[in-house]
């Protein structure tokens, strides 16, 4: 990973955001995240999970409050530098994969950052190895299955060797085997991870900390096991217990 970073990798203080002429989507968000942490951002539809992720990669910039990523304030001048440290996996893999073959797509980031060819090749090999899709290197993106597309999407950001990985609903459209595969993969990855998801079982399997959003505000922030066992908290904010706890309750 990149240069040694002593402070929080991510520092969010009193962050608020609203789309043009609209009600605030996020209100007074405060989160600090350290290297290696894995955080699940949970909440019902429209609570601002995706907006939060977009703010973290600088796709939305006109926010109020403080947002520092890898010790740099998120302002237009810093966006390119910050993005070198962040990998963002879109909810829909079709939006992520735009090159002809998987290998070319995985190489896109390193090539665009001007890395030498040997380093590009090394990173592509490593990303494909980590995601166990070496055999898909020359396969046309158009011909991949849903699970393969998701793994290829993750490979495209792993080749950038990011310090932070952001994922928007990563378990959507995955069959049980690919879902398990993705959980194992995420648990083996060293970088800090922020996973926005409705799939609370998935969050439980991959995150040690959970942030519960409701109507744009943080309702709870703490250990995943603690928050995801709190039936009353979850149900009062439109969620349900993860299936494994739900059956324990019964």
């Amino acid at each position: 990973m990149k240069t040694g970073i002593e402070k929080h990798l991510l520092h969010i203080e009193n962050l608020s955001y609203h789309y043009e002429n609209d009600e605030p989507v996020l209100k007074n968000i405060n989160i600090d995240v350290n290297q290696g942490e894995s955080i699940g951002v949970i909440g019902t539809n429209g609570v601002g999970k995706s907006t939060l992720l977009k703010l973290l990669v600088g796709l939305l910039l006109d926010y109020d409050g403080t947002l520092e990523v890898v010790n740099h304030p998120m302002i237009r001048e810093n966006v390119n530098h910050i993005r070198e440290h962040i990998g963002y996996v879109f909810q829909d893999s079709d939006n992520q994969l735009f090159m002809t073959t998987v290998g070319e797509d995985v190489a896109f980031g390193p090539i665009n950052y001007g890395l030498p060819q040997d380093e590009v090749n090394r990173r592509v090999d490593e990303a494909l190895r980590l995601t166990h899709i070496e055999h898909l290197r020359d396969k046309h993106v158009y011909k991949l299955s849903g699970g393969e597309k998701k793994l290829a999407s993750i490979a495209t950001i792993l080749s950038m060797e990011p310090d932070i990985i952001l994922m928007d609903e990563p378990s959507v459209a995955l069959d049980p085997q690919n879902r398990r595969h993705l959980i194992n993969l995420l648990n083996d990855l060293a970088p800090m991870k922020i996973i926005a998801s409705h799939d609370l079982d998935f969050v439980l399997d991959t995150c040690d900390r959970v942030v519960l959003l409701y109507e744009g505000e943080i309702i709870a922030d703490g250990p995943a096991d603690e928050i995801l066992r709190d039936k009353e908290l979850l149900e009062s904010h439109g969620l349900e217990l993860p299936i494994r706890y739900y059956y324990q309750e019964i």
């Binding site: 990669v57 796709l59 390119n80 993005r83 070198e84 962040i86 990998g87 963002y88 879109f90 939006n95 992520q96 735009f98 070319e104 190489a107 896109f108 980031g109 090539i111 665009n112 950052y113 001007g114 060819q117 590009v120 495209t156 950001i157 950038m160």
Partner: peptide
């Protein structure tokens, strides 16, 4: 998605 992977108008195509 392209922007997030370093694309800033000067596309480097292939190595």
């Amino acid at each position: 998605s392209m922007q997030l992977r370093g694309f800033n108008g000067e596309y480097r195509y292939v190595a």
